[in-house]
Each structure stands twice: as structure tokens, then as C-alpha cells.
């Protein structure tokens, strides 16, 4: 075994409760972890209440999507995803040189991950150091510096922002949640000329927890940047992507990976809150 390795089960529970009866509800859940070079999904299952037929497909970004609709009047929608995932830390290879990163073919290939979206766009002061980062010879070190810069300017503060916040709003407030810190980091990476994408998933909090004991995990977000291969970096925690990071989806920003999105007819909804429980299987 060449890198640290974990076998984890994840239970992710989310949903909405309505101020009355909701109906004609159409939804997509992006809550199924994806298999990759350093992550293997052994088992995954999504359950929905009320009970309705589910259909699955893989979207443009390679994410497994579970779609369903609920016609009958209902007061609550619950979605629960259970997965078992073998995860190991990715090996980080030698980075591309800047000249390779600026190759026209590569720039065109990754253009979707080099352009700001409305969620990642930053203007003004925030971008000031981009020019100097482009002189840091080693791409990994450059990204590390960008991560430190973000952490120094945007403090992690649960509840500081709403789910619809933009990178610029979080920057101006100087605080945000992992989603905001990720958006700001993406804005800076792209402005520096580094292809970068938004990753959503889970973070297992500790390697110390006992086998079989469920601990509170986190629904989490971080970035991957292209340095020859996609390389994960967690700007909220100031670490590389580890075996404790379980990837569910990636995209240009949060809107491409929202865990549960939908439309319905009926009164206002309030979130049931998100519960993520994780445990080691061995």
C-alpha cells in the first residue's frame, strides 16, 4: 500500500418540510459518490420519501444524478443516500510548467474551467496578487499560496452566507462557509490561469474514530486544479485532498453540483437540515 487508505460508509440525509401540502415536485439529487483513480464506490443507494420511482443518469460533468417526481400532495420530502467507498489519498505528481499550462490546445480544452462564472467572478482588490502568483515556478506551491491567501481573507464562519452567495459577496464580507471559500479560490485560480473546478463531497473528520462507530461528517466543498492531472486542494482546511475526502460531484461552480435541487407547487419550504454520518468499516 503506497498511500493512506480508508474504507468508509456515508449516510447523507437531507430534505424539506412544507408549510402545507406540496405537489408536482420535480427533483434531482447529486448524492452518489463517483468512482475514480483514488476512490472506489463499493455500494451506493438513494432512498426517497414519499416513495416514488427513481431514475438515474450521468450528467455532462460525469456526476451520477437521481431524478424523481412526486405528484401526490405531501408535507415533507426526505432524501437519504448511503454509500460505501474505498478511498486513498491521491499521489501528487510533478506539476506542469507554466509554459505547458498556457499551451493553446490545453487552454482551449479547459476553457470552461478557466472562465469565471457568476458564482466565482471576482473583481478589484481580490485579484491583485494574481500576477505575482504566476511567477511562482512550482504550480503546487502557487496553488498553496493562493489557498493561504484565501484563508487569510475569508474566515470560515458557519451560517455567514446563504447557499446563493457569490465569491465576491464572501470576499467583501471576509467570511463564509466552505462553498464560499471554494468559490473565491476558484475565482483566483482561474484568474491566475490555472484550470480549476468545484468539487462537492464529504469529509471524514478524524482517522482516530473507532471502526464501525458513526461520527458526524460534513458535506464539504473543495477545489481541483489541473497540474497535469486533476489535483485536489481543500482551501477551507488548508490541506491537500486526502483519503478523508470523498468526491461526489465536480463542475464549474456550486450550481453544477447542488446535492438536491427541485421545483414544486405549494407553500414555502424549509430545509430539514443536512445530516452526514460517516464510519470506518475496517
Amino acid at each position: 500500500m503506497t498511500s493512506p487508505h480508508l474504507s468508509l460508509t456515508v449516510r447523507h440525509h437531507t430534505g424539506f418540510t412544507y408549510d402545507g401540502l406540496a405537489k408536482a415536485s420535480y427533483n434531482e439529487a447529486r448524492m452518489t459518490p463517483v468512482s475514480s483513480a483514488h476512490q472506489e464506490v463499493r455500494h451506493s443507494h438513494i432512498a426517497v420519501l414519499p416513495l416514488v420511482p427513481l431514475s438515474t443518469h450521468v450528467d455532462y460533468f460525469g456526476t451520477c444524478v437521481t431524478a424523481f417526481d412526486i405528484q401526490e400532495p405531501h408535507t415533507q420530502l426526505e432524501v437519504e443516500a448511503r454509500s460505501t467507498v474505498e478511498s486513498r489519498a491521491a499521489l501528487v505528481g510533478d506539476p506542469l510548467a507554466w509554459s505547458e499550462l498556457r499551451d493553446a490546445v490545453l487552454v482551449d480544452f479547459f476553457s470552461e474551467y478557466l472562465h469565471a462564472t457568476s458564482r466565482t467572478d471576482l473583481v478589484g482588490d481580490a485579484l491583485a496578487p494574481c500576477a505575482q502568483w504566476a511567477h511562482v515556478a512550482d504550480l503546487h506551491e502557487c496553488v498553496e499560496a493562493i489557498g493561504e491567501y484565501v484563508r487569510a481573507h475569508v474566515r470560515y464562519e458557519p451560517g455567514a452566507t446563504t447557499v446563493s452567495a457569490t465569491a465576491q459577496e464572501a470576499w467583501d464580507r471576509g467570511e463564509g462557509v466552505c462553498q464560499d471559500i471554494t468559490h473565491v479560490t476558484l475565482g483566483l485560480l482561474r484568474a491566475t490561469g490555472i484550470p480549476a473546478r468545484y468539487v462537492s463531497g464529504y469529509l471524514y473528520p478524524s482517522e482516530e474514530a473507532e471502526v464501525g462507530v458513526a461520527v458526524a461528517g460534513q458535506s464539504h466543498a473543495w477545489v481541483e486544479y489541473f497540474a497535469g492531472g486533476w489535483t485536489g486542494m481543500d482551501p477551507t482546511n488548508g490541506v491537500r485532498e486526502t483519503e478523508r475526502h470523498i468526491i461526489v460531484a465536480s463542475g464549474r461552480d456550486y450550481d453544477d453540483v447542488a446535492p438536491l435541487k427541485g421545483v414544486y407547487q405549494g407553500p414555502a419550504a424549509s430545509s430539514l437540515g443536512v445530516v452526514v454520518e460517516m464510519s470506518r468499516t475496517h
Binding site: H57, V58, D59, Y60, F61, F109, S111, E112, H115, D256
Partner: peptide, 18 residues
């Protein structure tokens, strides 16, 4: 044609893939 010409079009429909 550059990929970016297509992916930067507001009409490129990612949701329609498939």
C-alpha cells in the same frame, strides 16, 4: 473549431447532454 467557441455559447445545453 475551438471547443471554447461552443462551450462559451449561452445556448450550449449541458442539461440536454444524453
Amino acid at each position: 473549431i475551438p471547443r471554447s467557441v461552443v462551450t462559451s455559447s449561452p445556448h450550449f445545453c449541458r442539461a440536454g447532454v444524453g
